[in-house]
Amino acid sequence: MVGAGGGGRLPKSSKHYGLTALCPIKLGTAPGRNSSYEAVVRETLAGLDSHERSPMARVPNTYLARLYILKDVFYEGRSQQEHLKSQYLFFGSDFHGELEPYLRGMWENIEPEVRLIWQHCVAFGSSVNSAESFVDYIKKCQVSNTFLFNGSNDRPLAEQLKGLYLKQEFGDFVASHQGASDDELRSAFLSFAERVQVTKLDGPTWRPGAQTLESARTHS
C-alpha cells in the first residue's frame, strides 16, 4: 500500500497526493510566555486568515488542507489507558502533483507563514532554513497513508478552478441565450469564448479559496 513519496499516493498512477504529517511540538514553557509551546502554536493557527486570505491559498495546487493539534489519543474504556508524550501539529494536505515540488512551492510562496506556524516544533528551528531543508523536515514527519480515497478528480488546481469558472459562466450563457437564432447564437458564443478564454488557465478564472461569488470573480 506504499505509494510514491512514502505513501502519499494511491494508486501510484493518480496525480492526487495526500500528505499526512505529524510534527512534534516542543515540550515545556515558551520563552517569555506564560504558556506552553503547544498553546502558542494553537494561538498562531487561530490567528491565520481564512479562505482566500489563508496562506494555503498561495500554495500552488492545494485542493484542501488542514492544521490541527493532536493533544493526546482517546481512551475507549476497554483496555489499559495510555497517553502521548508529545503533542503533534498535524498537517494534512490534498494536492495535485508530487510531494517535493509541492513542498518547495509552499516554502517559496509562504515561507514567513511556514516559519511562524512551525517555529515551535522540534528540530524545525535548528534544521530548516531553505526549501530543501523544509522538504527534508516534512518528509521526516510524514506518515504513510493506508488508504486514500478520491471522490473528486486529480486535475491540476488551475484546471479545477477554471472548470468551476466555466461551469458558472457557461450555465449563465445557456440560460440567457434560449431562443436565439443560429446566427445570433454562434456569434454570441464566439464573443463568449473570447471573453472566458476556455484554454487559458491563468485567467479569467476563480480565485483559490474564494468563499463568495464576488471574491471568486475578482480574479477573473
Binding site: 488542514r66 493539534i69 479559496g209
Partner: peptide
C-alpha cells in the same frame, strides 16, 4: 478532533 485551520481551494 476539531480542526484549527481548514482551507478549501473552492468553498463554493
Amino acid at each position: 478532533i476539531p480542526t484549527d485551520h481548514y482551507y478549501s481551494a473552492y468553498p463554493l
